[in-house]
Amino acid sequence: MNCITVHNLSFSYPGHIEVFNDLNFSVVNGEKAGITGPNGSGKSTLLLLLMGLLKKESGSINLWGKSVETPDDFRKARLKTGFLFQDPDDQLFLPTVEEDIAFALLNRGISRENAREKVDTLCETFRIGHLKKRIPFHLSWGQKRLVSLAGVLVTEPDLLMLDEPTAGVDDRVIETILAYIEGFSGTMLISSHDKAFLDSICTSRYRLLNNRLEKC
């Protein structure tokens, strides 16, 4: 069964800057798909479109076999999806690291006790336990990346979308990210320029070029 099915998707930014024109592709459940492509080819835009954070012009998006059209459809889809943004500063906004990681859990109505337990476990896994009481804005770039990833993974999503997860981070942080997401059993869509990272994680690769997504 397909996790993501995109049919004839078209999208342009204001000013008639066409990004996609009749784009078609699908990702099956459990697939770890990597998307590469030059800067400005629309990798991040595609991820945002799939989650309804940008409004498509035409075409259809199906997630887990269901068409997602309305804001409510996308809201439900987001409950099953973890999205790591390119810039961790866009994602982190709570006063402490542990609050930031717990945010999505508490939004889903999970009790504080359970949320705290999950946060503690994840902090242990990511070796960021010592940062729990720190202010997220004051962390290093690599630490921010780990905290933002923890904030995404804490909900145990079925679908994980990572936008340039290794951009600007050192090898140690990449190893920590790899160690965790290698064991991730859901579907994954990773947009990245880091070919070595994609090679080590992905089961399939796509290349986005000239408004087309081709399987490599």
């Binding site: 945002l48 989650m51 954070l53 809201r75 987001r78 409950l79 999806t81 973890g82 999205f83 943004f85 810039d87 866009d90 994602q91 906004f93 945010f103 999505a104 939004n107 889903r108 904030g151 995404v152």
Partner: peptide, 11 residues
């Protein structure tokens, strides 16, 4: 972008 990140975490 900040608002989108909030939406993705079910705000």
């Amino acid at each position: 972008r900040v608002y989108n990140a909030l939406l993705m975490r079910n705000f």
